[in-house]
Structures are given as C-alpha cells and as structure tokens.
Simulated scan of single mutants.
Amino acid sequence: MSTAHAPQQNARAGEPVDRDTHFAIERFLIREARLLDQERLHEWLALLTPDIRYRLPVQEIRYRKDQKPIGSATGTNIYDDDYRLLEMRVRRMDTGLVWFEDPKSTARRLITNIDAEWSAREDEVDVYSTFLVYRNRRQRDEAWLVGCREDRLRLTGAGWRLAERTILLDQRVVLDKNLHVFI
C-alpha cells in the first residue's frame, strides 16, 4: 500500500487538544446542534464525512466485571447508519410523509462537557460530550433523552467534519415513541 495516501500517525494521540482546536470543535458541535434544532438537515449532512458511522447501541445491563464495550454484541444497535442511510432518512423527511412529524415536533439539543483529545490519525480528534435532547409534539407528547456521545472529527479542506458518532443513552428503557431524532 502506498504511504502517499495513508493518514499520518499522530505522536500526540491521547493528549488533550490545544485551546484553539478545542474552541473550533466546540463551535462545530454548537453549530451542528443549531442546524438540527432548526431542521436544516441538508446543511447538517454537509458536516458529515462520506465514510461516517453513526450509531446508537442498545444499553446492555451487565455486571461490573463484564468489561466488553457497549454495543459489542452482534445486532445490539438501535441504528448503525452510514452516510447513505443518513441521507435516506433526511430525504424521507423531505417527502412530508413521516406521520410522526406531522404535525411537526420541536426539538432542542443541549451539548455540554465537551472534552477533546488528539486521535491516532494526525487529522482527527476524539471528542466526548454529554447531551440533553428535549422533544415536544402536540400538547402532552414530550420526550427527554440524556446521554453522552463519543465522536471522531476529521479536519478537511472545508473544516471539521463528523466521521464517527456513538450515542450512549442513559435510559435503560427508552420510553420515547420513536427515536427518529438525530442526536
């Protein structure tokens, strides 16, 4: 394999990012949340890399001695999407035929506790954040989703882009009627 196209290995892997990089990452996540809150889904898609992996594993109840990573069992994801599937979900919203979104629900995403460190690849960072997503539809139909996200952001010629996201919900049983919302 030619090393001309291989990503550079990062000697700083695991170290916290510098202040300017952290600020840029924070701005990226805040903008992403705003685009999703405003349902500017095509603009949100532009923030993703073509090789993105976007997944929400099922929280498995385990004893403390079982140290397997969450989502490591086969078939334990609520969703495990690539760019094509995410784009299809956005296009589906464009049709106006998503019954759960008519009338439209409103959502607000709060992103906090952002921590970032350099990844093994020179052009990537690993980002940890916590979130609270509130969604309301009609008078009494509301949902609260709380958890953390483990992201990988990649620096491209167009700026930071989301290359990977793993969403971990704190709820053991999700009582929401659907998980159509992007987190």
Rank of each mutant, 00 (worst) to 15 (best):
M88R: 14
A158Y: 04
A11W: 08
R55V: 13
H5Y: 15
R109A: 07
L169E: 04
V173F: 06
D94P: 00
I25Q: 01
L29S: 07
L175N: 01
K104S: 13
N10F: 14
A73K: 04
T166E: 15
I114L: 08
A33H: 12
L145N: 03
V173K: 12
R92Y: 04
A46F: 04
Q139R: 15
V90E: 12
Y79R: 08
Q67T: 13
S129K: 07
L45N: 00
P50H: 12
E39I: 09
V127E: 15
L162G: 06
W99C: 01
G157K: 00
P57L: 09
D81W: 08
V90S: 13
R89I: 05
R92W: 10
R53I: 14
L169Q: 10
V125Y: 03
H22Q: 11
S105V: 02
A46Y: 00
A120L: 13
R138F: 07
E15W: 03
G96S: 11
V174I: 03
T130Y: 11
A163I: 06
V174K: 03
R152L: 03
P50K: 05
D102G: 01
L36N: 05
A13F: 10
I111H: 06
A33Q: 07
R53S: 11
R140L: 15
I30E: 07
V127D: 14
L168Y: 13
L179F: 02
I114G: 06
I70K: 08
V90G: 02
L41V: 09
H180W: 07
L45E: 03
P69I: 05
R121Y: 06
R152Y: 07
E15M: 10
L45C: 07
L179W: 02
E87R: 14
W44M: 07
R165C: 04
E117S: 14
R64W: 07
R40V: 01
R165W: 06
L153M: 08
Q67P: 00
V58N: 05
F131Y: 11
R27H: 14
R135I: 03
R121S: 13
Q59L: 11
R172L: 02
V125C: 15
G159H: 12
R27G: 11
L168C: 02
G157T: 04
I167G: 11
L48H: 09
C148M: 14
L155A: 03
L179N: 12
T130V: 09
R135V: 10
M1G: 06
E122G: 09
I52V: 14
L153D: 02
R55L: 09
T74F: 13
T76Q: 11
D102M: 08
Q171K: 06
P103Y: 00
V173P: 01
A120I: 13
D123A: 10
R91P: 01
E43L: 10
A24W: 15
A11M: 12
I114V: 04
R172E: 09
E164R: 06
A46K: 04
T130I: 02
A143W: 00
T76E: 02
Q38S: 10
A33C: 15
G75H: 01
F100W: 15
L29C: 12
H42N: 14
Y128I: 07
M93G: 06
L97T: 02
T3V: 08
R53Q: 14
A4F: 07
L169I: 14
A4C: 04
L132A: 12
M1K: 03
P50M: 10
Q9P: 05
Q9T: 11
Q38P: 03
H42D: 08
D82A: 09
R91T: 03
